[in-house]
Design a protein around this nucleic acid. Structure first.
Length: 486
RNA sequence: GGCCCCAUCGUCUAGUGGACUAGGACAUCACUCUUUCAAGGUGAAAACGCGGGUUCAAUUCCCGCUGGGGCUACCA
C-alpha cells in the first residue's frame, strides 16, 4: 500500500473523523476505529473530528452520547473538533445539520440528479435494475406537484445502470462495483429526513474531511456515497476500510464473547493504556517486533500501510496480559490509588486505609485487572469459613507435622518482641531447621489455616499484616478441625 | 439467494518468487527462581486451508474450490 501524499490531502493536513451513532455504548470496534483515526491525525499533524450521527430519533439517546464521549476521553482519544470542544465546521451533531442536508437534496432535485419517487415502497427492493421509468423521467414541475399533494414521498438519486464505480481503498486496493447493484438510492426518506449515506456525504464534504477511515461493514456504502459526491460535483475523500474485530469463534463480536463495551473493561479494572495498546495490535503491526507502545511511540510508528486486510479476533487473555504488564509498570502509589477504587466497601469499613494499602501492594504482580482484588485478597479481611478440600487433604490431613506446626509455631510467634516480617521469618526458619522440616512443610499448613487454600502472597509479609492475634486464632481454628478430640 | 471481502501456529501477527530449518507476542507445556501462587528467567511444542496452473523455483503470482465474514432498508 502506498502512503498517499497526493492532491486530495489539503495543505493543512489530514482531517479525519469518527462518527458514531449514539444508540448504545462505545463498543470495541468503534473504539478501535476511533483509535486508528486519532492515530492517523496525530501522526500526520492533522485534525481528529468527532461527529455524533444522531439522526435515528428512535434509538439515539443522550445517555449514549455521554457514554461515547466519556469512553473516548477515558481512552485518551481527545478530539480537536466536536461536541463540547466546538470548531469552525460545526454543528457536530448530525441532527442539527438536517437543513443543510435537505438544501443539497433540493439542489440535486432541481438539477435533475434526483427525483420524487411514487413507486410503492417494496417494489424496487429486489431487482434494482428493473423499475417503472415513470417517476424517474417526470418533468420537474410534475414532480413538485406530486410532492405538494403528497409530501410523504422519498427522493431518489438518478443512477445510470451498467456503470462501474471504481475507487482505490487505502487498505483494500481497487474496489469495483456495478451501478446495477446499487440502483436509484433513496436520499431523502418519505418522512422528509435525509438518509444516512446522504447525510454522511454532505457532512464529510462540508467538514472538509480528507480521509474516511471506517469499519469494513461500510465498504458497500462507499460506492453509493461516491455517486452522491459525483452528482453534487464534489471531490470525494480517500477511503480506507478497516477489517472487523470478531470473537474467538470468528463470529461478529457480541455479548457472549464477554464484554463488548469499553465501559465494561473500565469497570473490570483494565487500564486505558493497556486497552489501547491491545486494540492497536488487532489489525495493525509495526515494522519491527515491538508490542508495547506508549502513546508517543504509537503515534510515531503508525501508518496506514501497517494495517492488514483480514478480520482479527479479540483475545481477552492477551488483553489481560497487557493489562498485567501495565499494572506492574505503575508506581506503587499510583497502583494503590487506582486499585483502591475497586476495593469492596466492607473492607474500607473494616480496616484502615494504610492497612488496605499494604495488602493491595502484595498483589501488584498477581493482578491482571483491578476487579480481581476482591477474590484474591479477601482473607486479609475475614477468616476463611471453610478450607479447600484438596488443600486440606494434602497439606493438613495428609501431613503428620501439620498439627505440630499449627500448635508450636503460633506459640513461639506470640513470644516475639515485635511481630514483624523479618523476625517471623527468622523464627519460622529456625523452627523448621530444628525439627528437620522443609520450610514448605512448616509454612503450608499455616497458609491453609490462614487463607483456606494453598496460594497466597509471601507468608511472612502476610503474617505481619494480619497480626499475631489473627494468625494464632486462625491456626487454632484449623487445629481444632484437625484434632477435634483435643 | 445475489453482490463483495478475507485466508500464515489455538489467537494477534511478521515475512518473501530462491537467504524459510517460516520470525515475534499471548495462551500451552517443561525447567529455573522459590515458603505456596504469581511475577521474572530459560527452553519446547505449535502455522503457510485444498486442488490446479505460471516458473528452473511458490507460503509468496494466477485460477478454481473450500471455509469464514460483510452487505443486501425510506437503520446508522
Amino acid at each position: 500500500m502506498e502512503e498517499d501524499s497526493n492532491s486530495s490531502t489539503s495543505p493543512k493536513g489530514v482531517r479525519v473523523r469518527f462518527a458514531p451513532s449514539p444508540t448504545g455504548y462505545l463498543h470495541t470496534g468503534g473504539a478501535r476505529t476511533a483509535l486508528f483515526n486519532w492515530l492517523l491525525a496525530r501522526s500526520r499533524g492533522g485534525s481528529f473530528i468527532l461527529r455524533i450521527e444522531d439522526t435515528d430519533e428512535e434509538r439515539s439517546t443522550d445517555e449514549s452520547t455521554r457514554a461515547i464521549l466519556d469512553g473516548l476521553r477515558w481512552l485518551g482519544l481527545e478530539w480537536d473538533e466536536g461536541p463540547e470542544v466546538g470548531g469552525e465546521f460545526g454543528p457536530y451533531f448530525q441532527s442539527e445539520r438536517k437543513e443543510l442536508h435537505l438544501k443539497f437534496a433540493d439542489q440535486l432535485l432541481k438539477e435533475g440528479h434526483a427525483f420524487v419517487c411514487d413507486c410503492p415502497k417494496d417494489e424496487r427492493s429486489d431487482d434494482k435494475a428493473k423499475f417503472d421509468e415513470n417517476c424517474r423521467e417526470r418533468p420537474l414541475s410534475e414532480q413538485l406537484k406530486l410532492l405538494a399533494n403528497n409530501p410523504a414521498l422519498p427522493l431518489r438519486l438518478k443512477v445510470e445502470m451498467g456503470r462501474d464505480i471504481v475507487f482505490q481503498d487505502l487498505i483494500r486496493g481497487e474496489v469495483r462495483v456495478s451501478t446495477d447493484e446499487i440502483g436509484d438510492i433513496v436520499i431523502v426518506k418519505s418522512t422528509g429526513g435525509p438518509v444516512y449515506n446522504f447525510s454522511c456525504v454532505v457532512d464529510d464534504a462540508t467538514m472538509d474531511i480528507t480521509h474516511v477511515l471506517r469499519g469494513d461493514d461500510h465498504l458497500s456504502n462507499t460506492p453509493k456515497q461516491l455517486l452522491i459526491y459525483e452528482k453534487l460535483g464534489w471531490e470525494p475523500p480517500q477511503f480506507a476500510h478497516l477489517p472487523l474485530i470478531v470473537g474467538m469463534d470468528r463470529a461478529r463480536l457480541s455479548k457472549r464473547h464477554g464484554a463488548t463495551s469499553i465501559t465494561a473493561y473500565r469497570e473490570l479494572g483494565i487500564l486505558p493504556e493497556a486497552l489501547v495498546n491491545f486494540l492497536l495490535l488487532i489489525g495493525w503491526a509495526p515494522k519491527d517486533d515491538r508490542e508495547e507502545f506508549t502513546r508517543d511511540e504509537m503515534i510515531a510508528a503508525f501508518s496506514l500501510d501497517g494495517i492488514g486486510k483480514s478480520a482479527g479476533a479479540f483475545n481477552t487473555e492477551k488483553l489481560f496480559w497487557f493489562n498485567g504488564k501495565y499494572i506492574r509498570s505503575l508506581s506503587d502509589e499510583e497502583y494503590q490509588r487506582q486499585v483502591f477504587e475497586f476495593v469492596p466497601r466492607e473492607w474500607k469499613k473494616a480496616k484502615r486505609d494504610d492497612y488496605i494499602a499494604k495488602v493491595v501492594l502484595l498483589f501488584k504482580d498477581r493482578l491482571t485487572h483491578f476487579a480481581e482484588i476482591e477474590e484474591l485478597a479477601w482473607y486479609f479481611f475475614r477468616a476463611p469459613d471453610d478450607y479447600n478440600e484438596e488443600a486440606w487433604k494434602d497439606i493438613m490431613a495428609g501431613n503428620e507435622n501439620a498439627a505440630l506446626v499449627l500448635k508450636e509455631i503460633p506459640a513461639a510467634l506470640k513470644a516475639l518482641p515485635e511481630f514483624e516480617c523479618e523476625r517471623i521469618e527468622k523464627l519460622v526458619r529456625s523452627y523448621a531447621k530444628d525439627k528437620k522440616l522443609k520450610l514448605k512443610d512448616a509454612i503450608q499448613p499455616m497458609r491453609v489455616a490462614i487463607t483456606g487454600d494453598r496460594f497466597s502472597p509471601g507468608f511472612f509479609e502476610m503474617a505481619e499484616l494480619l497480626g499475631v492475634n489473627e494468625v494464632t486464632k486462625r491456626c487454632s481454628t484449623a487445629l481444632a478441625k484437625l484434632n477435634p478430640d483435643d
